[in-house]
């Protein structure tokens, strides 16, 4: 009789233990890890936050910052990175992650100050910070240091690309706005050809020439009204073309800047902003 009683107790306790406690910290963490690796960061953050109420976990705290960072929510990422304790095994990583988020938010004095602090520290990621700072310099209006010292922190395989960026930044292939205007004043359309706007340049040349010729022949054959109309049209095209050539040079230069900036940003993206690789989802 006593045996059966014990058996029932044992059986019922085992049976109830088979029920899944979805809200136990372990299960919350397991589920959050699944969401994190499924790139469902918003839900993963919610679950991790729930888990942190019960358990103090440095890894989870760090993963929350990575989740925010992956969603490009720099503000929250920065706030959460500030909460990583010095004793955390992810403290070093949190510094370079902070620098990345600051860079994505805005390249300003705070970014440079944090970068300098990290570079001058004995951090494992001091060189990463140095590389990120120098690459960010390419996107700012600050004067660049000497090429040799600028290239120091970069790896051998990065040096060629960075060196090309450096040269482009120092000597951008801009077109002079004044020269474009002067050229078009001398030969209509030549300013646009100088800014590589060949189609517009040839059209401007032909139209200005045509209206000038029409005005000239109409004056010659004593048709003053028509001659003045063509003269006005010709003058309009002439002046408009000079203005257009200056604008074309400005557009050309804006394009050069845009392509340069995009190139640098793509390079940084490709390099993951010099942050370490994490194997959270292996």
């Amino acid at each position: 009789m006593l045996k059966i009683f014990y058996l029932i107790i044992l059986l019922s306790s085992i049976m109830f233990s088979q029920q899944i406690d979805f809200q136990s910290p372990e299960n919350i963490k397991l589920f959050a890890d699944f969401l994190f690796c499924d790139n469902d960061y918003l839900r993963a953050i919610d679950e991790y936050e729930k888990y942190l109420v019960a358990v103090d976990d440095d890894l989870v705290q760090f993963k929350i910052t990575i989740a925010y960072s992956s969603m490009n929510d720099c503000e929250n990422a920065i706030n959460k990175l500030g909460l990583i304790k010095k004793t955390s095994p992810f403290y070093e990583q949190s510094k370079i992650e902070l620098l990345k988020s600051l860079y994505l938010q805005n390249i300003d004095s705070v970014f440079y100050a944090v970068a300098e602090t990290l570079i001058n520290s004995k951090s494992l990621y001091a060189n990463n910070a140095y590389r990120l700072k120098n690459t960010a310099l390419l996107l700012s209006k600050t004067e660049l240091p000497e090429k040799e010292s600028f290239l120091i922190p970069f790896e051998v395989e990065e040096k060629k690309t960075i060196s090309d960026f450096y040269n482009l930044k120092k000597n951008p292939p801009y077109k002079s706005e004044a020269l474009a205007g002067v050229l078009s004043a001398i030969i209509p359309g030549s300013g646009k050809i100088y800014t590589k706007d060949y189609g517009d340049g040839i059209t401007a040349f032909l139209l200005t020439g045509l209206f000038t010729y029409l005005a000239y022949t109409n004056f010659e054959h004593d048709h003053p009204t028509r001659a003045w109309i063509f003269a006005a049209l010709g003058a309009g095209f002439y002046v408009g073309n000079i203005y257009g050539s200056v604008a074309s040079a400005q557009i050309f230069n804006a394009k050069v800047n845009f392509e340069f900036n995009e190139g640098v940003k793509l390079f940084l993206e490709d390099k993951k902003y010099f942050t370490p690789n994490y194997d959270f989802c292996k």
Binding site: L11, I14, M15, Q18, Q19
Partner: peptide, 15 residues
């Protein structure tokens, strides 16, 4: 048999 079927039933019921 009872043990086996009940555990699965309980797990199922939570789901």
């Amino acid at each position: 048999f009872i043990f086996g079927s009940l555990t699965s039933v309980f797990a199922q019921s939570t789901l």
